[in-house]
Amino acid sequence: MVDITNLKVYTKDFLDGIDNKVLYGSKCQACGNFEVPAKVICTKCQSPDLELVEVKPEGKIAAFTCIGVGTTHFVQKGYSMKKPYCVVIVELENGQMISGQLIGGDITYDENQDPLIGGKPIKVGAPVVGEYEEYIEVIEGKRGGRQEKKRCRLVFRLK
């Protein structure tokens, strides 16, 4: 049964999962639809009766890009036009997809101006495996002061 004022699954459950090094999908108990990343309501039948299911962060590259002009967060991490970073969309075992950074070395370009990571070509279809990168998030308190929180990001590496 689902409480009428509360959903069973919230976005935070997915994010807490990542912080605990678990990738969650959601399985709809009404229609069986399975989605990754976990949703808060089934996007097929709109049932809120979802169960979190652990998913192996493993699959193949469906699409990728190597970014030279990054977001502020990635610029602060030291990425630039001279030191691009790669983001991939990974197609998981059952066809669901998820976005994440591809790590495993510097991005360079071959003679055809196609990208390599750590010397290995980045290609659609290439198998990748996920891992969890730890980082510290600094949270500004509402009444001043700062708090540090240990968090994780899901990243991928070429297999």
Binding site: A63, F64, T65, I67, V69, G70, T71, H73, F74, Y85, V87, I89, S99, G100, Q101, R153
Partner: peptide, 13 residues
């Protein structure tokens, strides 16, 4: 966004 995707990055993918 948290994966580092920018707007050019989305269309690039």
């Amino acid at each position: 966004f948290h994966a580092g995707v920018t707007f050019p990055g989305l269309y690039a993918m």
